[in-house]
Structures are given as structure tokens and as C-alpha cells.
Amino acid sequence: MVAGTAARLLARRGHRVLCLDSDLMPGLARSLGLGGGADVASPLGDAAERGEDGRWRLKKGVGPVRAVRRYAAVAPDGVQLLQSGKLPPEGTAAIMSSLQAYYKVVHRLPRARTFADWAMVGDLPAGPRQAASNWAPFAETFLILVEPTWQSALTARRVARVVRSREGSGTVSLVANKVAEPTDVGRVEELVGEAVVGAIPADERVREAERAGAALLDHDPSSPAARAIERLVDELASGVPPRAIASAK
């Protein structure tokens, strides 16, 4: 929800925005306002092939620019959404070509001059696995969302540790999420052991949007959570080009 809302807010502020979804579970397309129809199992399926050595490679002529032009969906406010794929009943083997293509494309994004002034917003699945496997090499900032619970704090510690263990990786910023009590921000900082850069309140309007499968900005752009994300985006956008990655829970 934060990634999709932040992406659209950046677009409304005049940035060209590329949203990068490496979560095998649905969610980001709906948060952007595209609905469930955009959740394609294998969007980059014909972009990669196996070489004679058995290794996956991008097909000739497919690079980051062509991949976005050909395979990205266009979300409201002009946000481009490139997805790695969604888990089909047959399992990940059935979408391996799409996953391989996505991984190779995102690793070439930082060197693609076309996207040098674009904002990129990545959405990683919960937990440290994809951060460890470097699924967001484009990220200059890792936003780690933390709820005021021990489980969430331990996860945040682990994700932060993993990100910081990679030489040359982005910086880590923590954001308190689902803040309900006046003491929750302090509790998050105490549990994780470091300061947060922002706080998003627990907001019934978010739950309503998620139940309806709608974008928060379409459901209620003036909700407290939307306003808090707006403030966060404005802080991020003060460094141009803003490149963020949201990793929740």
C-alpha cells in the first residue's frame, strides 16, 4: 500500500515513475489502482531464454528500456509498473523465464541512462529473502516499514542487517506503520534500536481500501495514512531523483 501510494504521489509531483514489483503475491497493482486484472503470472515470459550452457539470458534486443516499453503496465497518474510475475498453481518453475528476465532487467536499470532521472519504487515481499538475494539493486534507499510489535521489529532488524551487509547497497530508513497509540513510534524505535524517519497512522480507510481492492488515493486521498505517506514522499523527493524501496512487515 505504501509503495503504490508513494509511486502515484511522486508521479503527481511531476516525476516519471517506474514501479518494480518482485512480490510473487498480488497487491501492488491494486494499490496503484490497476485492479486485479493487472496481476499477470508471467509478464516477462518471452523476454528470456536459456543459452546452450543452460543459463538464462535476456533475448537479443531486450534491455531495460525495451522491457519497460513492451512489458510494463501503465497505472493511474502515468506510473509504469513492471512485474516479475505472480505465483501460478503450477509453482515458480512455470514462470522461471519471467523471473529470470525481471532479475536481469532490474540489475541493468542502474546503468540505463534513459532512466537516470526517473523515480523508481520497488515493492519487495515481506522478510529478508529478496533483500539478501539483491532483487532491488536500483535502490538508493531501503524503506523498512515497522509495526509496533516484536515480530515486526525483529524482521526490520534482520532486513536492515542484510541490506547493510552488502557493500555499496542503499541506505536504510525505518518508517513506523500502523501507529495507533502516542507511544507507538517510541516503542518501534526502542524495539528496533534506531530512529524512524516517519510514521504512518493506523487508519480504517486503509483497511477499507484493501478490502475493496482499491488504491488508497482513489478510495480516500485525504485519509490520515495518505497524508502521512505524502509527507514521507515529499521528504524523499527533496533528493532528486528519488529512488525508494518499500519492504513491509
Binding site: 522478510g127 534482520r158 542487517r161 542484510v162 551487509s165 552488502r166
Partner: peptide
């Protein structure tokens, strides 16, 4: 298992 650090390149 537990993931504690980035995978080597």
C-alpha cells in the same frame, strides 16, 4: 534456517 546477510554475488 535464517537469513542474516546478503548472498555473495
Amino acid at each position: 534456517s535464517r537469513i542474516d546477510r546478503a548472498d555473495p554475488p
